[in-house]
């Protein structure tokens, strides 16, 4: 099987996010970057599937600046076979449609059975790119996957929907987006880290993949802001019975919920 997995480096999820002076971008100077949390489930699934299907090749791809290469090195250390870096300094400004167009154009002349993503990237939090890529390539898709198995050319997967699990069947090639619970992502091995250090990371530019004229963006950032900090209100410390009485009063008189 040919498996492609798309990964993205994002600000450390523990970090506070500040807005830069333009008011349209986040300030990146003081933050470290990490693999987007859901992407790790996608990478792990690619590796598990490759281990179960002899002769499979897993290719990890990222779009981003030079710094994003580290992410590919980390994935080599985990065991992916090939990596491709699509170089762009503008990536942080691309919307989902633009990103999906680049990915679809990249995949168009490749042979692929499965294309894996995290179900959303920490950042725009949109969950758009996997579905958009499936639409542009006109292939099957299953999103928010928490369990999957392959037999022949078909994929059977469970996905989480509100209050239910939906069992989907799809034909390959298929786009899959991973949800937490799909697997337990592995750590990098020391041996893997050493081997990955020596590997060349092939880099191409966005222009090699798709003419820039085709990258019209669907949405435009008008402004970013940090939400107004919520202030703490009253606090009660005392006997549980009294605490419950106070709370009940608050829920009844203030919130009017009981």
């Amino acid at each position: 099987m040919n498996i492609f997995v798309f990964v993205k480096h994002v600000p450390d999820t523990e970090a506070r996010i500040k807005i830069d002076s333009s008011g349209k971008n986040i300030a990146t100077a003081d933050i470290t970057f990490m693999d987007s949390p859901y992407d790790e489930f996608a990478v792990e699934q690619a590796l598990l599937l490759a281990e179960a299907n002899e002769g499979s090749v897993v290719t990890a791809v990222t779009i981003g600046s030079e710094d994003a290469k580290q992410l590919l090195r980390d994935n080599l250390a985990k065991g992916v076979n090939e990596v491709v870096h699509i170089n762009s300094d503008k990536f942080g400004q691309f919307d989902a449609l633009t990103t999906a167009k680049i990915i679809a154009a990249f995949l168009k002349d490749k042979e692929y059975d499965l294309v894996l993503f995290g179900n959303k990237a920490y950042g725009a939090d949109n969950s758009l790119v996997p579905s958009m890529v499936a639409g542009l390539l006109d292939v099957a898709q299953i999103n928010l996957v928490t369990k999957m198995e392959i037999s022949g050319k078909s994929v059977k997967a469970e996905r989480q929907v509100e209050g239910m699990t939906e069992i989907m069947e799809a034909s390959m090639p298929c786009v899959i987006s991973a949800q937490k619970g799909l697997n337990e992502p592995r750590m990098k091995s020391l041996k893997g880290i050493m081997a990955a250090k020596k590997k060349e990371i092939p880099s191409i530019s966005v222009g090699d993949v798709i003419p820039e004229s085709e990258l019209t963006m669907g949405i435009e950032v008008l402004s970013l802001q940090n939400p107004a900090a919520k202030e703490g209100g009253k606090k009660f410390e005392g006997e549980p019975v009294d605490a419950a009485t106070e709370l009940f009063k608050y829920m009844r008189e203030e919130i009017k919920i009981v």
Partner: peptide, 9 residues
């Protein structure tokens, strides 16, 4: 965006 740390227009 950023899991609620930022509001975007």
């Amino acid at each position: 965006i950023y899991a609620g740390k930022v509001l975007a227009d």
